[in-house]
Amino acid sequence: MIRIVGVNKKFNSGSLDEVYALREINLEIREHEFVTVIGTNGSGKSTLLNVIAGAIFPDSGSIEIGGKTMTRKRDYQRARYVSRVFQNPFMGTAPDMTIAENLLMAWFRGKKRYPVISLNGKQKSFFRDQLSQLDMQLENRLDTVMKTLSGGQRQAVTLLMAVLKTPDVLLLDEHTAALDPKTAAQVIRLTQKFVTGHKLTALMVTHSMKQAIELGTRTLMMHHGRIIDDICEEERQKLTTDDFLNKFEDIRKQEKLTPSLIETLKNQYV
């Protein structure tokens, strides 16, 4: 479903704070895979998502989605295939528009919009049905302005919007990070429900090791722009969050090793 070949991305190229956000990323995600991505801060996990979504273009390499080359397509051109949920619950919805209007915008994802009024009773009752899946009693608040909802409610609606028109690929960028634990759990439940229900191909960036292990079918670990570990279904079942922590800790230590430090350590060990 997604094929990424040799993708590199550098920020602030040429300046002092040049950052390699992605280095030689090669990744293939099959259909119906639900991939969780964890990584240290600045490991490039959000950049990876942005590159897939088309919000950022890679410096080199190519990206294919559903068999079509997308490398140079802008985000709105990819929206037919890709839908996204952002970390910030305020980013995924238009605050001054009603729930119904927001859903309508999602319903038209990747389609041309004409000057006709299609938000009629029929459309609204369809939205009502969809909203009832959220279990948040939002189905009777279609004409409520988005900004009056809580962060969790908004994120749930954002999630619904992302899957309303079944996308080929669903990208979730730490979409529960800004929520309180209880709401986060609720949104995660919905995520699972939608991804399995719609048989979606999904890529979820998270910084919760627990989510990374418990959700999805595959886990990628990223560090310094590289995918350092790609853990498939069977292997994942044996993992604990501490394993991830240790893995990241190991990498951090590796970076600190100098020959003199090794010498010191050696002399204290044997």
Binding site: D250, K253, Q254, K256, L257, P259, I262, E263, L265, K266
Partner: peptide, 15 residues
């Protein structure tokens, strides 16, 4: 196991 290139694969330590 104490060669610079191999150390981190054999040994865990506290920096």
């Amino acid at each position: 196991i104490f060669d610079a290139g191999h150390f981190h694969r054999w040994m865990n330590f506290t920096p």
